Amino acid sequence: MSLFNRAQLFGQLIALPTLLFTLLFSLFYVAGYDFSVAGFYYRLEGGHWALQQHWLLQDVLHSSARQLNTLMVMAVLVICIWRQLTASDQRRASCILLLSLLLSFGLVALIKKALPAACPWDLQAFGGVQPFNWLWHSPAPGAVLGQCFPAGHASAGFGWLALYFYWRDSSAARAKTALFGALLLGTGLGLVQQLRGAHFISHDITSAWLCWCCCSFIYAFMADLPGQNATQSSLREGYV
């Protein structure tokens, strides 16, 4: 498959998700429904983030979940190295899975550092001291903003959308299960942080879209796509 065709495939994979992301981001971030949902949680917890330090959310579903995710990525790394050394027929697929995970987590972390944004618990509207600042505006002098956009914790779930592409060409059932599983996991981890006051819904939506784009990119430009071998054989035969 030519580079142009792979670029077309990448475009096809992200077209609909990007449209959905744009609509949801506009609804929650631009139209302000982020504040409506966060305000609901804030009032539900008694006018303060009562669950911010709760052992289940902080220690188990945040800290321990992050550690588990790190261990899972390390396991993928070991499997990938093993398959390279043993000349497994899953070498390419394993590399795609590993690179998709690393790119997803890495890009989200990079953007978090490049676009400092306050968490809900930092904002005046939710008991904090910082005024709200749009992402495209420069922060006020002296403002101390957190690194809360996009959502890093939710990406620990959404990054595993990579498993959808891992099985996309070999098992439709497993790919579908991986797709919904990663979306459910990312949404659940995102909800944990929303309840703690750490993120808005738009932060999670952005992480989901970024992870999907990263996985789509790696798959479109690295996968041994169906029909590719036949095309290459035909080209070779034409030169004989």
Rank of each mutant, 00 (worst) to 15 (best):
W134Q: 08
L189H: 11
L185Q: 02
A75H: 02
V144N: 09
M74A: 15
D59Y: 01
P226A: 10
G197S: 07
F4Q: 12
A178M: 05
A154R: 08
S36C: 00
W55S: 14
D89N: 12
A173G: 00
A223V: 06
H62L: 04
L98K: 10
F200Y: 15
Y42D: 02
L235P: 00
L102P: 01
V192R: 05
S234R: 14
E45R: 02
Q228I: 01
V144Q: 14
Q130S: 14
F132A: 15
A15P: 01
A198I: 01
V78S: 01
D34I: 06
T22H: 01
L44K: 08
M74W: 12
L135Q: 03
A125D: 10
I218L: 13
L225V: 05
A50V: 09
N229D: 12
D59K: 11
Y41V: 15
G197W: 06
G157F: 00
V60M: 08
S2F: 07
Q193P: 01
G146E: 02
C95Y: 02
I96M: 15
L98I: 12
G186T: 06
K113G: 00
P17K: 09
C80M: 13
G181H: 08
R174Q: 12
T187H: 01
R92W: 01
Q84H: 10
L103F: 14
I201T: 12
L183H: 05
Q52C: 00
S216P: 10
L99C: 14
Y164Q: 02
R83M: 04
G32H: 09
S234I: 04
A125S: 13
L51G: 03
T206H: 05
D59R: 12
W212S: 09
F165A: 10
G47V: 06
A162V: 11
L235R: 11
L24C: 13
L110V: 13
A143P: 04
H48E: 13
F21P: 09
A173W: 08
L24N: 03
F25K: 09
S94M: 13
I111Y: 03
Q8A: 11
I14V: 15
A182K: 04
A223S: 14
V129S: 13
W212V: 06
M222F: 13
V240P: 00
S36E: 12
L191G: 05
L24S: 14
S233M: 07
W209S: 10
S234A: 15
C95F: 05
Q12K: 15
S88Y: 03
F126W: 10
Q124P: 00
H137W: 08
S88E: 04
K112N: 05
W136Y: 12
Q8P: 00
L20S: 06
A7F: 15
R92F: 01
R43S: 13
A93L: 03
V129Q: 13
G47M: 07
L13K: 14
A114F: 02
G181K: 08
I14M: 07
A93C: 00
L163Y: 13
S202A: 14
P141T: 09
Y33T: 09
A125W: 01
F165N: 10
L101A: 06
T22N: 02
C214R: 07
V240Y: 07
Y164I: 00
G190Q: 09
V78R: 02
F132T: 06
L99M: 14
R236D: 07
L71S: 08
L210K: 03
A175L: 06
C215Y: 03
L51A: 13
A118F: 02
K113H: 14
